[in-house]
Computed example of a mutant assay.
Amino acid sequence: MIRYPLMSEGAVIGTTAPSSGVEESMHNLIREASKRLESAGFQVVAGDSVWTQEKAKSAPAKVRAAEFNRMLRDDAIDLIVPPWGGELLIEILEFLDFEQLPEKWILGYSDISLLLLAIMLKTGLATAHGTNLVDLRGEYFDETSAMWRTVMSTKTGSSVLQHSSAKFQKDWKHDAPSPCVYHLTEPTEWKTVSGGKVSLKGRLLGGCIDVIRHVIGTPFGDVRSFQQEQIGGEPILWYLENCELNMADQRRSLMQMKLAGWFDHCSGLMFGRSPANRPVEGYTAEDMYRELAEELQVPVVYDIDCGHVPPQITLINGTYAEVEVESGQGSITQYFRP
């Protein structure tokens, strides 16, 4: 059984840094995001870890975990949105309180996706893969990013439809900030290995390959038990994105997932756009996608709105999704089924 939190009007957002915090020179990003969210009717409560960063983490693992656990248990906080990702979230997993986890949304991506996946697999609590706090500081949201509020306000038993973006951001231009944060200049095109129309259905699960691969074989990465016990053996529709891996490393990582059984009874794979898909001796991302489609005998879709090349659709781990891709455009309907 999947449990879905519900975000209400005037929700209190707790922001804590279970991975990386924010250096002093960039504290203004948190203040701007908080101000913008408060002007939209939210309240924002920031933990101590948000304001510190040293040696690739916001604070020691036990300190980060304790603050996260406190926000989870605090009835005054309705959802948790970390400032951004980072490098070493994996250090806190063993210190988290997974027992009787309250129904509270956690939203983020990158290193945060490891936290989202671990919570989903261990507890059946739905988690939200999407924008982070600092990217919510714009004067307005593009249509794709703006859907986070609608998606996280969807009631159990209902559904929500999202479409592929019109344009995506090729490069960050920090010296020329945009009113909507992102500089959306390049035409979006969702692609398929088959080259034709593709339909996919299954329970959504996924995250950033760089980090979720590291819980294979641990208590935090038991996909088989999740599939059998939480979703009644339904097929999994994987969404995956790459932050820093070249194509050889990405291929090795996906092979490890395959050999560990993560792709058993899988209905398809969807990959986000990535600037890190560097070929190795002519071995390209497209080569890898074709190999996966052939090996797993499932559809493979790529360059979707997910991950480190914004904007991104809000994907809920645990929902039953129906995805349609045709002529470069895509749609995804998520059903909030228990």
Score class of each variant (00 low, 15 high):
Tyr239Arg: 05
Asn242Trp: 04
Trp105Tyr: 06
Pro177Met: 12
Gly330Arg: 01
Ile212Gly: 01
Leu89Tyr: 07
Val323Arg: 01
Ala285Phe: 13
Val44His: 07
Thr150Arg: 15
Phe263Thr: 04
Arg290Val: 03
Glu294Met: 10
Tyr335Arg: 12
Val325Arg: 00
Pro179Asp: 14
Asn277Glu: 11
Glu139Thr: 12
Thr192Ala: 06
Ile332Tyr: 04
Leu200Met: 15
Met152Val: 09
Trp238Met: 06
Gly232Glu: 14
Glu99Pro: 00
Ser194Lys: 11
Tyr320Ala: 08
Asp74Asn: 15
Arg224Trp: 08
Gln312Ser: 09
Asp111Arg: 02
Glu286Arg: 13
Ile119Arg: 01
Asn69Leu: 13
Trp148Ala: 07
Pro275Thr: 12
Ser331Ile: 08
Asp287Asn: 15
Leu89Ala: 10
Val309His: 02
Ser19Cys: 09
Glu24Leu: 08
Gln250Lys: 10
Phe141Ser: 08
Ile80Asn: 04
Asp74Cys: 09
Ala33Met: 09
Asp249Glu: 14
Ile106Met: 10
Lys155Gly: 09
Glu24Cys: 04
Ile112Cys: 06
Asp75Pro: 11
His27Pro: 10
Leu296Gln: 03
Lys62Ile: 11
Glu91Ala: 09
Lys55Ser: 13
Asp305Asn: 13
Ala176Ser: 15
Gln334Gly: 05
Lys258Pro: 00
Lys57Asp: 08
Arg203Phe: 10
Pro235His: 05
Leu107Gly: 04
Pro187Asp: 14
Arg224Cys: 07
Lys155Thr: 12
Asn277Trp: 11
Gly86Thr: 10
Arg31Val: 15
Phe263Ser: 03
Ile304Lys: 00
Val198Trp: 03
Cys306Val: 13
Leu254His: 02
Ala118Gln: 04
Ala276Glu: 07
Ser331Gly: 09
Glu286Asn: 11
Leu101Glu: 01
Ile80Val: 14
Arg203Cys: 14
